[in-house]
Design a binder for these strands. Structure first.
Lengths: 185, 185
DNA sequence: GAAGAAGCGGACCGACCCGTCCGCTTCAGC
DNA sequence: GCTGAAGCGGACGGGTCGGTCCGCTTCTTC
């Protein structure tokens, strides 16, 4: 996924790699970008030396996890370009982004601050597609002017972040609805 | 401020205390809650032992800084209760909160996660007054139903946080406007 | 200006954590 | 099964940082 031509891994190594990526995604989402590698290794059931053999630094591991999330969003966004109703497509996009941020509340912040090529390229690609979706929606009169992909991403990420300390667990939906209402012309 | 009956400090000690609080506020706002005490001490022009004499832990220092911000907001909110136009008072409240978060983008997150009595009490007080302002505004038809002080605080704080990585420096105003638009009925 | 209290700050300790390294284990091909 | 390569993981080094402590300095009071 990260590098298209990975030399085939031994079966046990591949198994460990998968478990590390899953454990890292969970741990980052739950404890934030400052989780220790030891914690991730513990969750994956491997020694922390094993983590460092696959990912030279903690940042590289974080980047791999972020990239996976970005790829999911990319796929979803591309599909939405085919949706005939531009306004509905935009609303769906927002909810998809919200779901992603919901799974990892540090996603937006992470993508913004991560300098790894893997992530900045993914972000760039995503922005281009999302900008298309926004322009379409604006022409259809469903979205106010003066907003781009970065703005929408930031606001949605923010709404989820806001709900992190909420009392009820579904508050994030209300917050996203507030933002959606604010995005209309 | 924190404790009403502080035993009088020696003149130089009081001077140092003031400089520490200013330096800490700046450093926390600029570098986040993880700044080192050494950095704060350096900015204040004191040794880091001096910081620990006034504040037993880093958390206590952070709490003192947060409390100061909360007190400013408290004062502002109380004044707004006297404003005859409930809708306008609410909008002003939101902008005041935004300005505070703008000065320290980690303010909201800090207040939510800080366990020190000093801060939780201040938050409680603020919530009560802001809830009054919101109820007034709702009765005046200026704010949608189903939102309380916590919600509004979260959304405003998040909007500012979102603007932290924005390209233009005034983007945070646009974001607050989006949220304000979303808060209307 | 003398004396004692208050304050200062840097050396120091211990905990934590990233990243390396190497002796041992496990897998894959024959 | 044998063999060599690939993989493993824990011990270790080095750096950082929060918090303590104590010999020295500075202020205040008389």
């Amino acid at each position: 996924m990260a590098s298209p031509v990975t030399t085939a891994l031994r079966a046990d190594a591949q198994r460990n790699l998968d478990r590390i990526l899953v454990a890292a995604a969970d741990a980052f989402a739950e404890l934030g970008p400052d989780v220790t590698i030891d914690e991730i290794a513990r969750r994956a059931g491997v020694g922390h030396g094993t983590v460092f053999r696959r990912f030279p630094t903690k940042e590289a591991l974080r980047a791999a996890v972020l990239r996976r999330r970005l790829d999911e969003l990319l796929e979803r966004s591309r599909a939405l370009l085919a949706e005939p109703d531009a306004g509905a497509a935009f609303v769906e996009l927002v909810w998809a982004a919200a779901e992603s941020c919901r799974r990892d509340r540090y996603l937006f912040e992470g993508v913004e601050t991560c300098g790894e090529l893997e992530v900045t390229e993914g972000k760039q690609e995503l922005h281009e597609i999302v900008d298309k979706l926004i322009r379409r929606a604006r022409r259809a009169g469903a979205v106010r002017a003066g907003l781009d992909a970065r703005d929408v991403g930031a606001l949605v990420g923010a709404a989820i972040q806001a709900a992190a300390h909420a009392e009820r667990d579904e508050d994030w939906r209300r917050y996203v609805q507030v933002v959606l209402a604010g995005l209309r012309p």
